[in-house]
């Protein structure tokens, strides 16, 4: 299997080779570019990204605003398309998939967690999850997934009756209820304070460890990288650092 990584100062080929032998590749990204043409100038959001993500990995994508991390995550999630390059999800070429195929991909394989939770305000926590489990084949029950994020007692609460952290944990429960292959989190703690953010990260970590879900979290908070298996840092649409984290911390140990 060909290994392609973006160049980075902390590359450790022997460790990586060993790991790749153990775990299958979930995402393979090759020469990925995204250009947003504006009236007079073009914005290059991604400039030739090469990346492979293994199954079960907890990856943190770090970078400042405008570094291209959200664009990359959106493309991995099948809600945006590249200008050039390819993205493979296992054997499926996402760049050649139709809108319908991308919908099916999102429905079956991807769990999304957004910065602003995006819960449907008219549905209770349980119903927000049922919205997803209704269209999935091997989903857990809303209660099971809420138990995983330690919110079983709020199954009948409406979003307006929950705190920000609780809303984000419901959003995680909604994302994982269908047992997705990958969990994509876009600044999941961006709108939360420290204490609440830790609770949310614990929920994500639990999902990653107990379900083995490949998890990608994007953040500009460097500390969060310490709880990941792998930290990919981006700047100006390029990967500038890609390293494995040998000493993982639990979310409670994080400091920011």
């Amino acid at each position: 299997m060909k290994m392609t990584f973006a160049p980075g100062p902390n590359r450790n080929d022997s460790t990586r080779s060993a790991m790749i032998r153990d775990k299958p590749i979930v995402f393979r990204v090759q020469s990925l570019c995204k250009v947003y043409p504006l009236d007079e100038v073009s914005v290059h959001a991604l400039r030739g990204i090469d990346l492979e993500i293994q199954a079960g990995d907890f990856t943190v994508l770090l970078g400042a605003s405008g570094s291209g991390k959200s664009t990359l995550l959106n493309m991995l999630g099948g809600i945006d398309i590249p200008t050039s390059g390819t993205i493979f999800y296992r054997d499926q070429n996402l760049t050649h998939s139709t809108a319908k195929e991308l919908t099916m991909y999102r429905r079956q394989s991807v769990g999304f967690v957004f910065q602003f939770y995006n819960l449907i305000p008219s549905l209770t926590a349980g119903e927000n999850i049922a919205l997803v489990t209704d269209i999935s084949d091997s989903a857990m029950t809303p209660l099971e997934s809420l138990t995983m994020v330690d919110l079983a007692d709020r199954v009948n609460s409406f979003p307006s009756q929950l705190s920000g952290g609780e809303q984000q944990r419901v959003a995680i429960a909604r994302a994982i209820a269908k047992r997705p292959d990958v969990l994509l989190c876009d600044e999941p703690t961006g709108a939360l304070d420290l204490g609440t953010g830790v609770g949310v990260l614990e929920a994500i970590s639990t999902v990653n460890q107990s379900l083995g879900t490949t998890t990608i979290v994007i953040t500009h908070n460097v500390s969060i990288g310490q709880m990941a298996d792998r930290i990919v840092t981006m700047r100006d649409g390029r990967i500038v650092e890609d390293r494995r984290n040998t000493q993982k911390l639990s979310p409670r140990e994080l400091q920011w």
């Binding site: 999630g77 319908k100 429905r107 991807v110 769990g111 999304f112 995006n118 449907i120």
Partner: peptide, 10 residues
């Protein structure tokens, strides 16, 4: 839009 992202068809 949220529904579209989480897998509902158009």
């Amino acid at each position: 839009a949220t529904l579209r992202v989480i897998g509902f068809t158009q």
